[in-house]
Simulated scan of single mutants.
Amino acid sequence: MKRIHLFELEDFSWFPDWLRGCMTRLILVMHKALGTSEQVAELVARVLKESGSSSVIDLCSGSGGPMLDVLHVLNKQPGFEGLKLTLTDLYPNMDAARRINSQEGSNVSYWTNPMDATRIGGETPGLRTMIGSFHHMRPAEARKILESAEKSGQPICIFEISDNGPPIFLWWLALPVSFVICLFITPLVRPLTLRQLVFTYLVPIIPLCFAWDGAASNARTYTLGDMDELLEGLGREGYRWEKGATGGKFNKLYLLGIPARGAAAGDHAAA
């Protein structure tokens, strides 16, 4: 594999929750700037229609991620008005969970118990999504996630905003670039807290962490060739895998696992 498993600060249990929250809000700004929501919505809609699933469970959601915007886009489309979304994370963002779960009549909920993406079983039906998070998994963990989806007959949509295509040395050029980007996009963060401002512009802890994790993310992203290795031996009857790139100025990669319609155990057909 070209992928190299460098560490990301956000992955450590000792990493402060407040700092992790600041980082995930910055990542959400990046997703908005790159048009992630529209591209993911297109993929999700296709997988839901082909598989007959009627709910989405998002893995590694952080503070909510782009799936909230994805759901907003889908809810405007015929047949997806009542689509339900459940957010999960190994380190649940409790502030985001309280905010989301307090909204009456919402079709979005945040699971407040830790959810390990490698241990989700068939008892949790629906389309599984991993947006900008699959690269956090080592190959054995990534393989387990794919095997679990296929074995339980549940669809999965994996989307990465980096393609890990450039030469390795370019990963490190991303460090100063990401540091500067952080300074420019911080005013776009919502909610924008005093702590985020102080530790960005006065004590630049957040830009340093953001820059390192950004470069490490590029190094850890599975290329299309890497995905072929992960998928080796998978693809049973009634379940197919599809991988590809979005193309355009900022190339993004996706991997879809799609069961035949009606084959998703425990789920029911979409409207």
Rank of each mutant, 00 (worst) to 15 (best):
K2F: 03
K2N: 08
R3V: 07
H5P: 09
F7T: 13
L9Y: 12
E10F: 05
F15V: 08
F15T: 08
P16F: 07
W18E: 00
W18S: 02
L19N: 07
C22K: 03
T24P: 09
T24S: 15
R25C: 07
R25P: 07
L26T: 11
L28P: 05
V29Y: 11
A33P: 02
A33Q: 15
L34G: 06
L34T: 15
G35D: 06
T36P: 14
S37P: 05
E38M: 14
V40S: 12
V44H: 10
K49V: 06
S51I: 07
S53C: 10
D58P: 04
G62S: 08
G64L: 11
P66Y: 10
L68H: 09
L68R: 13
D69I: 01
G79H: 09
E81M: 07
E81C: 12
G82S: 04
G82Q: 04
L83K: 12
T86M: 11
T86I: 08
T88P: 01
D89Q: 12
D89L: 13
Y91H: 14
P92F: 05
P92K: 00
N93S: 15
M94E: 13
M94H: 04
D95W: 15
R98H: 04
R99L: 01
R99K: 00
S102W: 02
Q103K: 02
E104H: 11
S106K: 05
S109W: 12
N113F: 06
P114F: 08
L127N: 14
R128C: 07
R128E: 09
R128G: 06
T129A: 02
M130K: 02
G132R: 03
G132C: 01
H135K: 04
M137P: 03
M137S: 09
A140F: 12
K144R: 15
K144C: 10
I145Y: 14
E147S: 11
E147Y: 11
S148I: 00
A149N: 14
A149L: 13
E150V: 04
E150R: 01
G153Y: 10
P155Q: 03
I156W: 05
C157W: 03
E160N: 05
D163A: 13
P166E: 13
P166W: 03
I168C: 10
W172N: 11
L173Y: 05
L175C: 03
L175Y: 15
L175D: 04
F179N: 10
I181V: 15
C182D: 04
P187Y: 15
V189C: 09
R190S: 05
L194G: 09
L194I: 14
T200W: 10
V203N: 05
V203G: 10
I205G: 02
I205S: 06
C209A: 15
A211V: 02
A211G: 00
G214E: 00
G214L: 03
A215I: 02
N218T: 10
Y222V: 01
M227K: 07
D228C: 02
E229G: 02
L230G: 01
G233L: 02
G235H: 00
G235T: 02
G235S: 04
G238A: 07
W241P: 04
A245Y: 06
K252V: 08
Y254S: 02
L255N: 11
L256A: 15
L256V: 11
G257C: 03
A260T: 08
A265D: 07
A265G: 12
